[in-house]
Write a protein that binds this DNA or RNA. Structure first.
Lengths: 159, 159
DNA sequence: AAGAAACTGGTTGTGCACAACTTAATTGTG
DNA sequence: CACAATTAAGTTGTGCACAACCAGTTTCTT
């Protein structure tokens, strides 16, 4: 086996490293695309995800939001604070259970939905994959997220 | 069906949102697994990627490193500084072209390779996917990274 | 009822990512 | 040669992501 290489991008990494890097690279590429698509609305991709959930639920606790997006309060708190500062949502401490904070849309936040309507289609076109491939891909990725999350959790527990 | 829904048959999240979120979630899950596996070496996943490249190349410019990992100097500069501070690598300004900085392994950095040997296998086991599925997945992801990167670049150029 | 345990959300600190800008070196062109 | 354009790396600023820790509530046990 020759070690000759002139292009650093073409070096052999083992199979799993290739896969992990592919997921990592695809995630960043996708975030970059959303950056362009969301620029006019001045939203980041994680902020857009929060808005997607709110457009469906209208009101939800920080905890449930974190469960849905698999993000903890250390990520969500400042993100929600920024969206609140922009007037897109409200946060009110629960009266029944004061540990809960309920997040809900303002009118402005609800209206933003219209401006975001065409984003899903634009993204799916940019992926340049037929629908059956997309479904296949998502299935495999969900499996990985599940099993890898379990494995990481097991390691964490054993630590 | 207790919820008022203005969209009768619509999915909670459209297909592309599911795919993008799946990639985003898988990427974070994988990073979390690497966090556990790399904890004893005190490396982050991006740092591990840099070390992987260096274990292959031994010496490489910051520019080529950025090309290989698709990261810019704003990300790499502080990351490399931290690895250098730990004594894992050196950075020397080029003598021929003084704009270039050449990154190379110290003995300690090279030795770390042994301790990282079993990580690829442990990760591939945690994914719980057969090899053919992994290859398939990587192929689809590479296609997405390519086309989405192109689309984002086109939007960026048109801005 | 009283204390222990669990839960929710928040803060702080570290480390990516990336845009925008700066500095210094090299290259291209007249 | 002069000098504009380009390139490489670094700096600064913003925003995730997550660990670790904290404060206030609730809930479980005794």
């Amino acid at each position: 086996m020759s070690e000759t290489r002139e292009h650093p991008g073409a070096d052999p990494l083992s199979l799993d490293n290739q896969l992990c890097f592919a997921i990592y690279a695809a995630s960043r590429a996708l975030t970059g695309l959303y950056r362009e698509l969301l620029a006019e609305m001045d939203l980041t991709y994680p902020q857009y995800l929060v808005m997607l959930v709110l457009w469906e639920h209208d009101t939800i606790s920080v905890k449930d939001l974190g469960t849905a997006l698999r993000l903890d309060s250390g990520t969500l708190s400042p993100l929600l604070r920024r969206l609140q500062a922009r007037g897109l949502l409200r946060r009110v401490r629960g009266s029944d259970d004061e540990r809960l904070v309920h997040v809900s849309l303002t009118d402005e936040g609800a209206q933003l939905r219209e401006r975001a309507r065409d984003i899903p289609e634009r993204v799916v076109c940019s992926t340049d994959l037929p629908e059956d491939r997309i479904v296949e891909l998502r299935t495999l990725l969900d499996r990985i997220t599940q099993s890898v999350g379990d494995a990481a959790g097991a390691l964490r527990a054993a630590r």
